[in-house]
């Protein structure tokens, strides 16, 4: 009976842990209303909140700036949607991969340690193009109607 309870409790915990994972970055600037879409739900975010792999960051009238654990930075203008598709970073070796999709809006990027270690280990997809990043600072506008 006890064993069954322990297994049931574990089963409850495992899917949750698998969903959340480690934080990949933190919100450092925010104006107006900014949402994160995570696991099918949308909720407002504020300075200090962590972001995770697979999150979609959404701005309406506001803006948001995020610093990631490899020291790369991204910020979004109003009316933007950015999906953080894949982020892996080994803090010891600096090996990693960072793939995201700007579905619409404006994005400012400064690449970090992932790209310094491995040029083009960072990609950004827009509805019209695929960007391979060698560094360091650039801006992207994507039109979801194109």
């Amino acid at each position: 009976m006890t064993a069954v309870r322990v297994i049931a409790a574990l089963a409850l915990f495992i899917p949750h842990a698998a969903l959340a994972g480690e934080p990949i970055g933190q919100i450092k600037t925010q104006t107006g209303t900014v949402f994160v879409e995570r696991a099918g739900a949308s909720k407002p975010v504020a300075i200090g909140d962590r972001v995770f792999e697979s999150d979609t960051i959404v701005t309406t009238s506001g803006t948001v700036g995020i610093t990631f654990t490899d020291n790369s930075m991204m910020s979004l203008g109003p009316m933007s949607r950015l999906k953080l598709d894949q982020f892996k970073f080994d803090a010891t070796t600096h090996n990693g991969v960072f793939n995201s999709s700007l579905q619409k809006g404006t994005l400012s990027v400064k690449s970090g340690n992932i790209v310094r270690q491995t040029p083009e280990a960072m990609h950004i997809r827009t509805p019209a193009a695929l960007l391979g990043v060698r560094g360091t600072e650039f801006v992207v506008r994507a039109d979801d109607a194109s």
Binding site: V115, A129, L130, L131, V133, R134, E137, F138, A142, S146
Partner: peptide
């Protein structure tokens, strides 16, 4: 099309670059 990608001068003067693949 409104899509636009622009490389900016880095704070340290370093410009690595971006490769843009489209169609």
């Amino acid at each position: 099309p409104k899509d636009l990608i622009v490389v900016l001068p880095g704070a340290d003067g370093h410009v690595g670059g971006v490769i843009v693949e489209t169609g």
